[in-house]
Nucleic acid binder design. Structure first.
Length: 769
DNA sequence: AGCACGCCGACT
DNA sequence: GTCGGCGTGCTC
């Protein structure tokens, strides 16, 4: 028998191995196969893609499988097809897609260790150096550790020579990958034992089986347990480890009754097993709808996936889930250890958890009896993977819904233009909740033209300051939203116009007053602080506003207020965020100055005022998605205020007539999307086309090749190609293409491989350079 | 992606 | 002869 396996390599080919029959388990599609690979036959983990009885054609040696460690497949049939889809649409190999989804703990690798011997032949200086390095460790040292200390690529060649000269010996060990194991203790039979043993035996008799670590926690020493085991009264077994306990939450709230409007959405969701887009005004109870839907699906014996953006696994959401599901759910996100992720993966596979709440990577969990997928805040950019394969979890969820015939509910107050368009075309079923479920009126929003404001204190308009004072003086809290960290982001010489740019990225750096340095926000590089122009010696001017400067100026204006900054510099973890939220809830903060992370998800019950300082900035980098980002950011920010108390918002802008700002402030949902769509259509931008960014690496000596490639790309049918844009590193060029269909992607790949250039394709990009 | 191999130029 | 720096080509 033969198996074809997909390895985690950027090549299309599958690799064939011979099955000997000595493997732990029989070959089956979706199981792992541990196979020798490459000239050194290093063991690697592959996924079995097909099993056949006849050998493949072609002239190559067929090696034997080392082992098949899984009693059952780790990938379900549909998951396999989903991975195939991801590899096709995002231009990766099947193996890369499968291994992106599979938790790292399942990967078995060979670990090579080196021990020193007495050299039989004279060594060269370099070999001598390596030999003494190896000898300096008391036990055999791993090659991967050695590689970090010694020159990367040349290490293997030297190691080989050391082995040839008898100066070193290699031994390989298999790092066991697989389900994390945990020891459990089981009651077997009654018998004679001491008092402590008696106590333990009774406990086990009552419970049948308990985790070993619980027993040691309750004060039973290893000795007692071992004694009982020796007598054959108890048995120690290994089980796949428990789920990590969900983090503690706020007190759960009772379930709420749905309104007529909400119920209608719920009914429709279970009638039409396709894709639904749920939108609505803030506080219209969208979350309640999908939580009830999840509850219903679980009650009828199905499992449910709820996908949330990276920063949305908030205590708020957790407490609401707990009020409906208790602790019978699991979390799945990048913050878990590989073993924890593997554990959730297996529970999903066996159908042991009815509900999993997770980030984008959870879209490919092997759910048993999947009955519903929910994707909350569907416009959120964190659904886009930034590593190969660069998949978009929303697109993958749509595909999964089609493959498994399971309803998918996309949820957002500010849907992506893409989803709005597809709903408009009838591909998605559109639902809109027009009314608030609370008695609290929507916040009053006012737009201030910063150009016309004469009575400005720095960046603060008179209207904003008086509203801010009113809010704080009447015991409320205020949130000032500015989408920039740091102090100032424009550093310019007033004499010669010289600006300080990042050496790697070419973009202006930001002055961080507290950290006493300049930081490039694109790549994170830090630069030494200077105050005089390096060209002419003039004193540099620091203009533009960031959270640091706003906080400082506000403190000068209101020295008695408690003002806190909420951005990636001050809040790095959930813990930091929760601490700050707690302070705010306890009323120990008057004003929060924050970036978009302060606006996301967190509920501040006492928030009565919101100020957006410079709405124009919310477009972000200058590309076709700017208006969409600005609209979404403004609506979301306004949505923070007036949830629990009547609120007020002031939006400041230099161009208040810019349509995303105007329509966000006035709440003209459809008008915004229709206008945005008209521009997208005019310039053939997504969603009218499929966008992709191609980065090609062209050596400086072969610039003509780039021209030829560009010309060839333009000749391909039904698409638009932008001019290659050189990236700051000098040899990579970025090309943005608008495709009429994804069937053109293979053609583009063909073309690129014909030109023999190294390249990277990002389909459905969220940022274009 | 690794990794080997081969070719080159630099330095003893 | 040794060393290090790339470009190239392959992996069942």
């Amino acid at each position: 028998m033969f198996i074809q396996v997909a390895l985690n390599l950027p090549v299309e080919e599958l690799f064939t191995y011979r099955v000997t029959g000595r493997e732990s388990h029989k070959p089956e599609v979706g199981k792992r196969a541990i196979v020798p690979f490459g000239p050194s036959n290093r063991l690697q983990t592959g996924i079995i893609v097909s099993v056949s009885t006849s050998p493949p054609e072609g002239n190559f040696e067929i090696k034997e499988v080392f082992d098949i460690p899984d009693p059952y497949p780790l990938f379900t049939e549909t998951l396999f097809r989903l991975a195939e889809f991801v590899s096709r649409r995002y231009c990766s190999s099947l193996g890369e897609a499968l291994f992106r989804f599979l938790p790292g703990a399942f990967i078995v690798e060979e670990k090579v260790r080196v021990s020193p011997l007495k050299p039989q032949k004279p060594l060269t200086p370099k070999e001598e150096e390596l030999h003494t390095l190896i000898s300096s460790f008391s036990s055999p040292v791993s090659v991967s550790f050695l590689r970090r200390k010694f020159g990367g690529s040349s290490l293997n060649a030297y190691l080989k020579r050391l082995v040839e000269k008898g100066a070193a010996r290699l031994n390989t060990q298999l790092k066991p990958g697989g389900p994390p194991k945990e020891k459990w203790v089981r009651y077997l039979k009654e018998g004679k034992c001491g008092p402590k043993g008696r106590e333990l035996l009774n406990l086990l008799k009552k419970h049948g089986e308990l985790p070993l670590k619980h027993l040691t926690y309750f004060g039973f020493s290893r000795g007692v347990i071992e004694n009982l085991r020796q007598k054959g009264l108890i048995q120690i077994t290994e089980k796949e480890s428990l789920l990590p306990p969900p983090p503690p939450s706020l007190s759960p709230r009772g379930t709420t009754e749905l309104t007529q409007e909400q119920k209608a959405v719920l009914e429709s969701l279970f009638k039409y097993r396709g894709i639904h887009l749920l939108s609505g005004v803030t506080c219209s109870g969208k979350m309640e709808v999908y939580l009830h839907a999840a509850r219903r699906a679980v009650d009828s014996g199905n499992s449910v996936l709820i996908l949330v953006p990276e920063l949305l696994l908030t205590p708020e959401l957790q407490s609401r889930i707990e009020s409906l599901f208790g602790t019978n759910y699991a979390l799945y996100h990048g913050g878990l250890t590989p073993a924890q992720r593997a554990s959730v993966w297996l529970k999903a596979l066996k159908g042991e958890v009815p509900l999993i709440v997770g980030t984008r990577i959870a879209v490919a969990l092997p759910m048993k009896n999947l009955g519903l997928i929910v994707l909350d805040e569907e416009q959120d950019p964190s659904y886009k993977e930034q590593q190969k394969p660069y998949y978009h979890a929303r697109t993958v969820a749509v595909k999964r819904s089609e493959l498994e015939k399971v309803p998918l509910l996309l949820v957002s107050a500010t849907p992506s233009v893409e989803s709005y368009y597809r709903a408009k075309r009838g591909e998605f079923l559109f639902h809109f909740l027009p009314s608030r479920v609370t008695r609290i009126p929507p916040p009053k929003v006012e737009l201030v033209d910063l150009k016309k404001e004469r009575k400005r204190v720095g960046i603060f308009s008179e209207k904003l300051l008086s509203a801010l004072e009113r809010a704080v003086n009447s015991g409320g809290q205020a949130l000032l939203f500015i989408n920039r960290r740091g102090y100032s982001h424009k550093i310019i010489c007033p004499n010669c116009g010289y600006t300080l740019n990042c050496k790697k990225c070419g973009v202006p750096v930001t002055y961080h007053k507290e950290k006493k340095c300049f930081i490039c926000h694109l790549c994170g590089t830090r630069y030494k602080l200077i105050f005089r122009c390096i060209k002419c010696g003039q004193r540099l001017e620091f203009t533009g506003y960031g959270t640091e400067r706003v906080t400082q100026e506000l403190k000068l204006l209101y020295p008695n207020w408690k003002i806190e900054r909420f951005d990636l510099d001050t809040v790095k973890t959930y813990k930091d965020a929760n601490r700050l939220i707690k302070l705010a809830v306890e009323g120990k903060i008057d004003v929060i100055v924050g970036t978009s992370i302060a606006v996301k998800g967190h509920n501040l019950p006492n928030l009565t005022f919101l100020g957006i300082l410079i709405a124009d900035q919310l477009t972000g980098p200058p590309d076709y998605m700017g208006a969409e980002r600005a609209y979404q950011a403004i609506v979301q920010a306004i949505g923070r205020v007036g949830r629990f108390k009547p609120g007020y918002a002031v939006v400041q802008a230099f161009n208040p007539d810019f349509y995303p700002i105007k329509y966000a402030v006035t709440g003209q949902f459809h008008t915004f999307y229709e206008e945005e769509l008209s521009y997208r259509k005019l310039f053939n931008y997504p969603p009218y086309t499929l966008g992709a960014v191609i980065e090609v690496e062209v050596p400086e000596t072969q610039k003509s090749k780039l021209k030829e490639l560009y010309a060839a790309m333009k000749k391909l049918p039904s698409q638009e190609v932008s001019k290659p844009l050189p990236l700051p590193n000098g040899k990579t060029y970025s090309i943005f293409i608008k495709l009429k269909s994804d069937t053109l992607l293979p053609k583009i790949k063909q073309l690129l491989s014909r030109f023999k250039v190294t390249y990277k394709i990002d389909v459905e990009p969220i940022k274009i350079p």
